[in-house]
Design a protein around this nucleic acid. Sequence first.
DNA 1: GAGTGGTCTAGACCACTGT
DNA 2: CAGTGGTCTAGACCACTCC
Lengths: 249, 249
Amino acid sequence: MISSGELAPGQQVPTEPDLMARYGVSRMTARSALGVLRAEGLVEVRQGTGTYVRAPQVKVRRDSARYHGEKARARLPLEERSGKGAVEDATGLGSDAFEHDAEFDTEPATEDLAATFGVEPGAELLCRTYSARSKQEGRPLWLIHSYLVYDVAAKNPDLLTAENEPWQGGTLNQLWTLGIELAAITEYVTARPPTAAECELLGIGPGTSVICIRKVSADTEGHVVEISDILLPADRTELVYTTKLEPWQ
Amino acid sequence: MISSGELAPGQQVPTEPDLMARYGVSRMTARSALGVLRAEGLVEVRQGTGTYVRAPQVKVRRDSARYHGEKARARLPLEERSGKGAVEDATGLGSDAFEHDAEFDTEPATEDLAATFGVEPGAELLCRTYSARSKQEGRPLWLIHSYLVYDVAAKNPDLLTAENEPWQGGTLNQLWTLGIELAAITEYVTARPPTAAECELLGIGPGTSVICIRKVSADTEGHVVEISDILLPADRTELVYTTKLEPWQ
DNA sequence: GAGTGGTCTAGACCACTGT
DNA sequence: CAGTGGTCTAGACCACTCC
């Protein structure tokens, strides 16, 4: 009924008692049938009211091409950078549409972070946790854990506290204040079902996926200066990556 | 038990009767608890034998940087192209490790395909369906629907039949035989739970996600010449995208 | 044949939502 | 308060796997 369009997005699907009567099955059978649709992300349940056809909704477009403009603006004076943080560029939405959270912490480097940074395991890292939620929906649009080597970040004490967030001009400007110029950003993208905790954090149901990005930023000498782990609700996110090819001859 | 490491990947988790006895619950309760773990992709079920902790396994790395080398090789003579199709480069595995399927068809352009190609809706498209399965596992590693405007592809009749697949040298060589030079490849990436049909096709369980890529290739004049829809099992795939930034000054 | 998970029934009580 | 879904029980039969 959904795939034929008989049930449109937003419409309620037959209730469990309906299905029991219509197909002569028991409650558990009707429930597990609905469970399949939920697992496919075709329907969502609203406690106490019913089960509804989900409207597929890609709202946030995350285009890697924004890094180019972000870098170009990273050295501009504050006034010109204002309102041009990473966030607005990443989504095409205005800065008013978001609420931000930032938490700063220090942690010893795990094996894989240390290996990527090229430091000793256990070295002190500045770990910054960001989340942004759209004011309309209330649900977070991303969760980010960003890592910097503490000794490097400490050269600019402004970077060590969450009070200066959201930072106007984005990470590339922050790194510039440390004398760092980024040359390449590599993103490793995977996807998987959300854990129960992530469903909670992102405000999504089990019938969805999450996209995990490990973003590795290297300076002009190839040293890794920042690593971010980015968690995105896949049902509201589209990633865009453009590869420009060298001309022949 | 899984997250504490008490149950290692590959190990069997307690059976349903075990759980019933241990926690004094009914069968359905024990089953639905296991269902949560399955939905999170933490365990997989082997009919008749038991439920086992899944080993997280990223095997296929799909690096967009391969396009650069692919383009450089696209004009080489056949001997030098051999064994250097898109497949091997994309995965790092040898060409022996795969079995290929290709099916060719023509279809009228849907709204969105026509809009992207810049042709009339209903215009004839060459639709090529590819799949590759690793010989070790038997399960497909990707499903690709590739679209070309039929009138364009028809300039080289070799491109119209599946008999010449797998084509040595990849799509960039195929386009070269049409006099087309690619300048940019844009990939739009989303993820979602698999449908029941996709579980079947890809040989994956419901406790996984699929990655969907729409790949749009444009020539040096900005015309879209190829569109591909790529479906990947997310539990065995990692996408890699590198953004090179222009130097300051 | 014994043990595994897959499916199903017929009931029960509860929490949440809207009227 | 009626209707929704969330959870649970105590049984049953079946298909698959391995010994």
